[in-house]
Design a protein around this nucleic acid. Structure first.
Lengths: 76, 76
DNA sequence: AGGAAATCGGGTAATTAGGGTT
DNA sequence: GTTGTCCTAATTACCCGATTTC
């Protein structure tokens, strides 16, 4: 899976699908947790993350949504 | 029922109403029960839940409100 | 260029999951 | 069948100041 960064900040794949980059705060609101918790997920390898040149983290929307749909994400 | 994740992290329904996520403790206080009881409601399928990558549960406020309005809102 | 908001780090207190039990 | 409590380990939330982003 190769991704290309466009000037508008989106990610493009070979399929043409665009992938938005989410901030820690956005991911945090999705899961109802603190932004710090999202960073901890990145540190423990639960979520892949991209770092800005200033060490801030960004997350691929597709990865986040995959976690939401992950095994056991809904239901019990 | 289809939920859509907005850029701000909220869940939207077709009605346009946004949904925020509640912690087990918040749901427990709403119903005046122990958080463990809320946990069991999720396990028995009485209320749908979202799981964090670390297996903790979050609850859609709209689902919780629906339960408050009367039994039988889900399933039976 | 100035200000408000967000995101780093660390450190510590509070919450949660899960099992077994009452 | 349902709920509340006890226990431990794991996870998360809130505190601070400094840095980055918009």
């Amino acid at each position: 899976m190769t991704s290309i960064i466009s000037p508008d900040g989106t990610f493009s794949t070979e399929t043409g699908a665009t992938d938005r980059l989410l901030t820690p705060g956005e991911v945090a609101r999705i899961f109802g947790v603190d932004p710090k918790t999202v960073n901890r997920w990145a540190l423990t390898g639960k979520v892949p993350s991209i770092r800005t040149p200033s060490r801030q983290r960004r997350y691929l929307e597709s990865e986040v949504r995959a976690l939401l749909r992950g095994p056991g994400a809904f239901g019990a």
